[in-house]
Nucleic acid binder design. Sequence first.
DNA 1: TAATAATTTAAGCAAATACTTAAATAATGA
DNA 2: TCATTATTTAAGTATTTGCTTAAATTATTA
Lengths: 123, 123
Amino acid sequence: MKLEIICTRAEADQKQLERCRETLNETSKNIEEISRIMAMAGNEVRLKILFLLSQEKELCPCDFADILEMSVPAISQHIRKMKDVGVITSRRAGQTLFYSLLDKSSDILGKAFSNINDNRKVA
Amino acid sequence: MKLEIICTRAEADQKQLERCRETLNETSKNIEEISRIMAMAGNEVRLKILFLLSQEKELCPCDFADILEMSVPAISQHIRKMKDVGVITSRRAGQTLFYSLLDKSSDILGKAFSNINDNRKVA
DNA sequence: TAATAATTTAAGCAAATACTTAAATAATGA
DNA sequence: TCATTATTTAAGTATTTGCTTAAATTATTA
């Protein structure tokens, strides 16, 4: 488990390697955050939920279970992950919880949504 | 395993549900593709590799192993995933394979990169 | 041709993921 | 207060993921 590889290529550009290490040092927090968002959205069910919310303003877990033909607990657990990352919020109306998108990180997700919409196949 | 849930809320908006199903039908291929890209980028190691490639034009597996302090096979397996999704390509120079970014899907990844760069902490 | 170097591929394994079913919360209404 | 509804939480499990080590490829050079 010891690791001190150091690229063995004769032509390895040490300045470039040092610059890369520096780059990662300066961006590690951002990379961590962006990759969390990507991982959250990198699931078809969750991306569908997010995309629907981008079009419908708000929907409840029961709606998603119906639309996606999945069990309610399965939906609920996906919702939790999205809430943990902080891209959705909820409002209660009686027994029903309505979920909606938060603006947070909408530049990345927004780009994804417009991409999904761009080459939409109108049947 | 039978599922025919149909949202039981009295207030469920059937038109909205139908519209959502329609939306997903029209976009399922796109959603599948985008979520594949997101899943690929939703890993810190891979996002680091992609981000470095966005700054350095090309690097080899050995470089990444050095910079990220990881084993070469581990890097190689990440590289394969990125190649499978089609966001990188390679050029051989002797025994060394140099990897670089392809433009494909760069609007989503590009947004992620600029996001990473935007609030870069200059140490 | 043999030895070495850069990389990939394969096999094995621990941890994470995404579902299942059952039980727990929370709000409504008889 | 009791039953019902919407939802979440928990426990169990099969699949996927991301590493490890060892073996196989591919190219260089002595």
